[in-house]
Amino acid sequence: MRAVPLILAALRRLAGSAGLLIGASFIIYMTVRLAPGDAVDAISPMGTPPEVKAQLAAEFGLDRDPVTGYFAWLARSAVGDFGESLVFSPGESVMAVALPAFKRTVLLSGLTLLAALVLGLGLAILLGEPGPRQQVLTAPAYVLTAAPSFVVAVLFAQGMNWFVQAFVEQGGYETPPWFPIPIYSESLMPYVFAGFAMLAGDGLFMDWFNTLRAELLSLKQAQFITAVRAKGARTVGHIARNLVVPVLSGFSARLPLVLGSVVIVEYIFTLDGAGYVLLEASRARDFPMVVGLSVLFTATIIVVSLIADLVRALIDPREVARGG
């Protein structure tokens, strides 16, 4: 029946993702080995005591040739042991610091992408096919959203400060008692602004919206939708189901972009997510931390695209048949 090819396809994807993970970790490891001069000196912060240097060299297998060094490092990393933080949070294990921060980052990026999906889809349905008037409207929108996320974030951060000074600190904003979540919360506010900065920046939203609108339009004009209409059935279910596949692809394709912009946006809003930790660790040359986070970021992209692939294979029978 259908289950066997599906399971085979899933296993093939799983193996492919494992291969990607190994390959990507190899690239990251080799980048470390590219360090000029004495690798240990190059990667350790100034004034690192010799015994820590020795430990670093052992952790990254710098005392061996690249290939055996890589496997030694891989064996430790595979069980989540990326060594100890040197500067950012001295003495603590990298994972203990990175994981909670990373969770916040994934939440922020995921919610941002989700918001982009909801807003984009809503607008695409509302606006329908592009007419001449909308082209006039989208041109300035295009210019605005071509702004890099960090410029948008800088502006938004200014705006947030102004907002807080002008309203919140004057007591102008209070959450009505019936409203379940606080409208203004000191800890939530930067996340909301950061999310919108990522949404608006790098053309993320505009690009997503254009893709969704084009997909929706081509689906509406698809012959099988006309056939469904002609037999008097509702087209909504058919359109929605067929939209899931491009939406999933779009979601996983945009994740690397979002995980890039989140780094800078977190830094600008000083949110203690993985991006902020990454940049702070990088400035302090806290090497184990930076490598551990790089692997985490990469692994997330691989795992999410694997999940997207699997769900797509469940929904779209042609994916399994294609097998690629």
Partner: peptide, 8 residues
Amino acid sequence: RHSLDPLL
């Protein structure tokens, strides 16, 4: 082929 919903 294009008259049938590919996912059902």
